[in-house]
């Protein structure tokens, strides 16, 4: 465990599924249009018309307390910061092995393509090294909230240390409709590295 763990909070009741957070993330982090998206929106419809409930879920990297990605990466390109628990990929080290993509239960590791990343940076070993949410660490360093959190017109997202979030939302839970199993990889196999313990809290849709 890191000394401190930053975490997200998501109120599934408030989210209308508008993609403002998705685009705010792309804009801030200069992720060009294309398949890579650090924050993603999914929805699940339960019931049949007209008695249907829509469960929206936006997810980025959950900066897990026990990250499956770092455990899976054979070149050690992904690491977890001691001071705040943020999981960071060193893109220079990435070899495009994509073991993280298989290991991560949440689809957080992202890979660009030639449209979104036309120019390979000199320091990169591969054309499209893994990229993902940084919790907007550059904004955090300046005392700003993550771009996604500050963008939500519905105030569905919040952010803080895991302790602060748990204290602020005492009834928060650790999973919600649409959220994957925290101990299974992308193929549904149980992770050898153990439960990821994602740094996200929820208010489930009533």
């Amino acid at each position: 465990m890191s000394a401190k763990q930053m975490a997200f909070y998501f109120d599934q009741n408030r989210c209308m599924g508008c993609h403002a957070c998705v685009v705010a993330c792309k804009d801030w982090n200069d992720v060009k249009p294309g398949q890579a998206r650090w924050r993603r929106l999914s929805d699940e419809e339960v019931g049949t018309f007209p008695d249907v409930k829509v469960f929206n879920l936006v997810m980025s990297c959950n900066h897990c307390a026990n990250p499956a990605c770092t455990a899976a990466c054979p070149v050690g390109a992904i690491y977890k910061r001691e001071e705040d628990g943020i999981v960071i990929v060193n893109r220079d080290l990435c070899q495009d092995i994509r073991a993280c993509l298989v290991a991560c239960p949440y689809g957080a590791p992202q890979f660009g393509d030639d449209t979104s990343e036309p120019v390979k940076q000199a320091s990169w070993a591969v054309k499209h090294p893994m990229q993902k949410c940084t919790m907007c660490w550059d904004r955090l360093a300046e005392g700003l909230l993550p771009s996604c959190v500050a963008s939500c017109p519905q105030r569905a997202l919040d952010f803080g240390t895991a302790e602060a979030i748990a204290a602020k939302y005492p009834t928060a839970v650790r999973t919600v409709v649409g959220f994957p199993d925290t101990d299974k990889d992308a193929n549904g196999n149980t992770l050898k590295s153990g439960d990821t313990v994602p740094s996200i809290f929820f208010k489930p849709k009533a």
């Binding site: 050690g76 960071i88 060193n90 080290l93």
Partner: peptide
């Protein structure tokens, strides 16, 4: 494969260390 950075003692694979050595981390932009 053209990796430019020095690699040693890293985490991953065997699920060992989680934190990287100083000089493998990335600077906050």
């Amino acid at each position: 494969a053209g990796a430019t950075a020095a690699l040693y003692g890293c985490g991953g694979g065997g699920g060992g260390k989680t934190y990287m050595e100083e000089d493998e981390t990335v600077e906050v932009p």
